[in-house]
């Protein structure tokens, strides 16, 4: 067990090197979120009435959307390991098996931290004026990382399950839609009734509301629940789903031959 920390750090270093040298992953992590932010603020923003400056409303949503795109890269990286012989080599060594997956997950967290910083930076240049204290900033970033954590474990699970890079890439199609059908880009009460039910009860909405609330001190939507309750719900969603998919990924990893 004494080797677990050193193994995870070795595999994280590897994961970060692979990501930072993969042009596709870097565009997904750095360029794409900025383009999406510009698109929402400059193109759609003028037409959307959210009761506040749209840039204040949309910034957290763009960050979560970027986390979804980034997760697709993680799924592909895990799939590459599984089918490319690296996993066989590691499993024939005295290395605990989930080390491989956790290396990708930690690398994804670091990558998303960079994405988050860039999106916030560009957003502030465009006029985003958060009223958060240092502690609220910290809490908001923590909330974002919890969200990245569960979605990355889901990606790792998908990467272990699928048998082709295309299938792993197709994962982004699914995660792309989660933030759209939430309060990330438009208030949920503008959605048709049947969609609103889904939007109000899926994990992205409470996470968005929590981050938005922390940054702006202005908690809207989510059926008028108190900010503390929304945050608790968001944390429960992320930790719960994170545990479920981490265990599922570990089990699938062991079961695959």
């Amino acid at each position: 067990m004494s080797h677990v920390l050193s193994d995870v750090s070795t595999m994280t270093t590897r994961g970060l090197r692979l990501v930072s040298r993969d042009a596709d992953a870097m565009i997904t992590a750095v360029v794409l979120p900025v383009i999406i932010l510009l698109m929402f603020v400059l193109v759609f923003g003028g037409a959307l009435d959210t009761g506040t400056e749209y840039i204040n409303y949309v910034t957290p949503g763009v960050i979560l959307l970027a986390a979804g795109f980034g997760a697709a890269n993680t799924a592909m990286a895990v799939e590459r390991d599984m089918s490319g012989g690296m996993v066989d080599r590691l499993r024939s060594m005295p290395v605990s098996s989930w080390t491989v997956l956790s290396g990708h997950v930690v690398a994804s967290l670091v990558k998303n931290l960079v994405t988050t910083a860039i999106v916030f930076g560009v957003s502030i240049l465009l006029g985003f004026r958060p009223a958060a204290t240092a502690l609220e900033w910290l809490a908001a970033v923590g909330m974002i990382l919890l969200f990245v954590g569960w979605i990355t474990w889901l990606a790792a699970f998908v990467g272990v399950l699928v048998r082709s890079p295309d299938a792993a890439g197709g994962f982004s199609f699914f995660v792309m839609f989660l933030p759209y059908v939430s309060s990330a880009f438009v208030p949920v009460d503008t959605l048709p009734g049947w969609l609103r039910g889904f939007a109000e009860h899926q994990p992205v909405t409470p996470v968005i509301e929590t981050v938005r609330g922390l940054l702006a001190g202005d908690v809207a939507g989510a059926g008028g629940t108190a900010p503390g309750d929304v945050a608790a719900l968001a944390i429960t969603w992320c930790v719960g789903l994170g545990l479920v998919f981490a265990v599922a990924a570990g089990v699938a990893f062991r079961a695959r031959r």
Binding site: R14, G84, S92
Partner: peptide, 30 residues
């Protein structure tokens, strides 16, 4: 696992790492 090494049919090295980085990583994992 402590006394064997396996070289499978597929080459198990990372294309985006240098030769030295690949070997160093395996040494650390060992």
């Amino acid at each position: 696992r402590e006394i064997i090494s396996l070289t499978g049919q597929q080459v198990a090295v990372d294309d985006k790492l240098s030769g030295a980085e690949n070997l160093t990583m395996m040494g650390r994992l060992a």
